[in-house]
Amino acid sequence: MPNYKILGNVGSFFKNPIVTIHRFQNIQKNFSILPYYKLDNYKIKLSAGWLIRQCGLAGYSIGGAKTYFENPIIIVNNNCANINNILNLSKKIFYTIKKKFNISIKLEVTLIGKKNPINFIDIITNNNF
């Protein structure tokens, strides 16, 4: 993880998604080298970083927000990123993974509005940012 004093970040921005065994097997048909962790007989945890990398989004940037190339689940403030840069980048990652793998990734971070936490899915689907 980059040193936040040198390269602004909040650590892991996305959670590693948990999928069913069936969904995992469908993905594995096209991607034989797929890192995973078996949780039980029904669920598999996948690497969000691997999914982001497979989508060509490691090191990808929008405005000043950029995925950290070495570990793309981390979004860094590369050059005076604002909230729109961060939300647009996370939206790009969300929809690209959804389209390629049919997986909806979730945030590790909590987005805070003026008074309450903000629902990420509501924001990106309604463009309320």
Rank of each mutant, 00 (worst) to 15 (best):
G49M: 07
N78M: 09
W50G: 10
Y36C: 12
L51P: 04
S61T: 03
I103E: 02
L46Q: 09
I86P: 00
G63K: 01
G59L: 00
H22L: 13
I118F: 10
N85K: 04
K98Y: 15
N88M: 13
I105N: 03
I33V: 14
V76Q: 06
L34A: 06
P72S: 11
L89S: 10
F101W: 07
K43Q: 14
L87R: 05
K92I: 07
F101D: 03
K38R: 14
A65N: 07
I83L: 13
N84P: 01
V109I: 15
I93R: 06
G113R: 04
A65Y: 08
I74R: 04
I27H: 11
I44P: 10
L111S: 03
I97D: 05
N116Y: 11
N30G: 12
K43M: 04
K98I: 01
L34W: 02
N26H: 09
P117R: 05
L46R: 07
I121W: 07
K45P: 02
F94M: 03
Y68D: 04
G56A: 08
L51Y: 04
V76I: 15
S47N: 09
Y68K: 08
T110R: 14
I93M: 03
I103A: 06
I103P: 02
W50E: 03
C80K: 15
F120G: 03
V76M: 03
C55G: 08
A58D: 14
A48R: 09
G64P: 10
I86T: 11
I74M: 05
L87Q: 10
G56Y: 08
F69Q: 12
V109K: 05
I105W: 04
T67Q: 05
E70D: 15
I52F: 09
F120N: 02
F120T: 01
